[in-house]
Design a protein around this nucleic acid. Structure first.
Length: 501
RNA sequence: GGUCCCAUCGACUAAUGGUUAGGUCACCACCCUUUCAAGGUGGCGGUACGGGUUCGAAUCCCGUUGGGACUACCA
């Protein structure tokens, strides 16, 4: 039987980073085995539906390179792939279970159920549906049940869990799992609004869509016994289960918004590369060797195996993601500078900065080893596009009595440098430093102040060469005419604009 | 509270009974150097604890402790 797996998110908001990893493992497993990767939308809770979610899920998967083979938009022979369009199927199957005596009608109101739980809590017992004391098919009898149904009384259908015995199943990651029936609740399968719960819809769809492997988050492990029971009640063979370890916050709780961005959309917006994010999350909970970090999607497919998936949760460490993204940035600069230029230009335009593709490309090359994400260019190298703002603290540490004279001399050296290349600049300035017995460090810092305004930046000679002779001389002159202002506001935190020359 | 799952450096992980417990990120130091990075070299740092089984345990078993998930007519 050929492999068929599914990713089945609820459209309750943006695709979550944990959801992306679940989708990724499903995708890798499918591709590794030459199987099919199905996207199914589980929208059975109408109250939690968020418009736009499906579009975001699809767009995020596509961005990551995880295109489904079957989905609401890709179609397929097992559709529809949206659960709200399948309600008749679930109603039919729930009724089938009632007929077989594997499920039953219940008429309890939310208030009655709440009181039941309070009683149980007070008595110190686990809150569970009390089949023998509530209003249902068993306590009311067949005639009364039929009468209430005919009268249109709101009713749910609950799973009739056996009183004695155990459910056993095998998890590809966790091995054999055994749970006594007595610990399993009589789960609602069909809600009084006629919609199924997750448990019913999920099992019915996985069977009808010929899913062979259910690869999902560990949060589903506790309800898997119910699902197995459902397969048995229908007389179906359950799929293989594989429950993935959770993605964790730094405090080891389930990954959530409280500690930072969790939507894939946020990472796209911050300029992370899809191959970096995919590479990173692939290695959160799975590892083929332990001595290698960088994998292409094809290499991940080739190496992927459920046997190598870990059991313990994995903390999402942003610092390592940044490192990995930087690795991919270095690579892209070498192999595909054009795409980086295209990606960066809109961010520059937003600020009203315009430059040629060639110039943008050179700036990226100049600073790429100092940043992790491409959009950081905008903050890091703003001075490559607009006049510098002087960092006053840097000014105070660099500036002294002789700086003005020195700067004027440097201006002459730069003016007469030809060709205007980083190498020639370095040669001339070095020579100048030697002649005047000035540490090269002082020259570098002074020029850095004039040209960039700040302490940190790319190589000074390369920066000046790219900026050009005219602009460099202009900036030196600007600093010279700003000195009075800078010295006049010693306690101020704000940066000082370069003076127009 | 109940049920289930989990447990190797701060983080991600390798080692499927025999290694001085390996790699990556982070951190520290040094080299390189005009700043900051990148790169290179080195370092710090771990098998939660206690019992077994075995010639030999990170690895198998039991217990303890700790963490997590679940416990809805949400998924």
């Amino acid at each position: 039987m050929s492999v068929r797996v599914r990713f089945a998110p609820s459209p309750t908001g943006y695709l979550h980073i944990g959801g992306l990893r679940t989708a990724l493992y499903n995708f890798l497993f499918a591709r590794h085995h030459g199987g099919r990767f199905v996207l199914r939308i589980e929208d059975t809770d109408r109250t939690r539906y968020v418009p736009g979610s499906v579009e975001d899920i699809l767009a995020s998967l596509r961005w990551a390179g995880l295109e489904p083979d079957e989905s609401p938009v890709h179609g397929g022979q097992y559709g529809p792939y949206v659960q709200s369009e399948r309600t008749e199927i679930y109603r039919h199957h729930a009724a089938m279970l009632v007929e077989r005596g594997m499920a039953y009608y219940a008429f309890d109101t939310p208030d009655e159920l709440e009181r039941m739980r309070q009683r149980q809590q007070a008595a110190g017992i686990a809150p569970r549906y009390d089949r023998s004391a509530m209003r249902n098919q068993f306590t009311l009898g067949e005639d009364e049940t039929a009468r209430l149904l005919a009268a249109g009384q709101p009713a749910t259908i609950r799973l009739k869990v056996p009183l004695h015995g155990d459910v056993k199943f095998h998890d590809a990651i966790r091995g054999a799992i055994v749970v006594p029936y007595k610990d399993i609740d009589d789960q609602v399968l069909l809600k009084s609004d006629g919609f199924p719960t997750y448990h019913l819809a999920n099992v019915v769809d996985d069977h009808l869509m010929a899913i062979t492997h259910v690869i999902r988050g560990e949060e589903w492990l506790p309800s898997t016994p119910k699902h197995v029971l459902l397969y048995e009640a229908f007389g179906w063979t359950p799929p293989q289960f594989a429950h993935l370890p959770l993605l964790l916050n730094p405090d080891r709780s389930k990954l959530s918004k409280r500690h930072g961005d969790v939507a894939v959309r946020d990472y796209i917006a911050k300029g992370y590369f899809p191959e970096a994010l995919v590479n990173f999350i692939a290695l959160l909970g799975w590892n083929p060797s332990g001595d290698r970090e960088l994998y292409t999607l094809d290499e991940l497919i080739e190496a992927f195996s459920l046997e190598d998936v870990n059991k313990a949760g994995a903390v999402f460490d942003l610092a390592k993601l940044d490192w990995m993204n930087a690795q991919y940035l270095h690579r892209r600069v070498q192999t595909d500078l054009g795409s980086l230029i295209q990606q960066l230009r809109p961010l520059l335009s937003e600020r009203g900065w315009n430059a040629s593709d060639d110039y943008i490309g050179r700036v990226i090359v100049l600073v790429h080893e100092r940043i992790h994400r491409l959009p950081e260019v905008v903050e890091f190298a703003d001075y490559m596009f607009v006049p510098p703002r002087y960092d006053e603290e840097f000014f105070r540490t660099v500036w002294d009595d002789q700086s003005e004279t020195l700067l004027r001399n440097l201006s002459s050296v730069i003016e007469t440098t030809d060709p205007f290349t980083a190498e020639e600049l370095h040669r001339r300035l070095n020579q100048f430093a030697a002649e005047k017995s000035i540490p090269f460090r002082r020259i570098g810092n002074l020029l850095r102040l004039a040209v960039t305004g700040k302490r940190v930046g790319a190589g000074m000679m390369d920066t000046i060469a790219l900026l050009g002779k005219d602009e460099t001389l202009r900036r030196i002159a600007s600093l010279l005419s700003s000195v009075a202002t800078l010295q006049g506001s010693p306690a101020s935190d704000s940066d000082v604009e370069a003076q127009p020359s």
